[in-house]
Amino acid sequence: MELFTPDFGLIFWMFLSFAVLFFILWKFAWPAITKMIDQRAELIDKGVEYAQQARQDLDQAQAKAEEVMQEARRQQADILREADRVKTQIIEEARGEARQAAAKELDQAKLQIDQARKEAEQNIRDEVSAFALNIAQKVVRNQMSDTKAQTQLVDSLLDEIEKKN
């Protein structure tokens, strides 16, 4: 059977052509191709890992941002409350101080008014006594011009002294 007996020529050429093909592919094709397949597989694996990591990071970052926002909101509220408190305090203080200052002014004014009044009273008294003396002088001068009146006065004065004794 010709089919089952290998022909030498074909075996020879088969070896030769396989050797040539193997050499060409081994030298030029396979290292590049297998390296690329391996590298790409690795790249894809890394990419997937990276994406997962990135998503995790993103989730974490979002959570963190949320936290920071909450914190900020809390602080804002705190600050507002504090500001309110300080505001009332300042107003309170200012009011107190104003009241004190007003009281002081009032006291001083009172003091001055008192003094002024005393001075005025003194003045008035002096003036009034001067007037009175003046008037008395004038009156005495008028009444003592007539001798009858003068004797009458001496009599009355003597009477008075008698009565007392």
């Binding site: 022909d7 030498f8 020529g9 074909l10 020879f12 050429w13 088969m14 052509s17 040539v20 093909l21 060409i24 592919l25 030029f28 094709a29 191709i33």
Partner: peptide, 23 residues
Amino acid sequence: DISITKNVFALILTVIVVCLVLL
């Protein structure tokens, strides 16, 4: 006998085709 027979020629063609596919 190491003639380039039909099969040998087909072998050479195969080598060329494989190279053309992969290179």
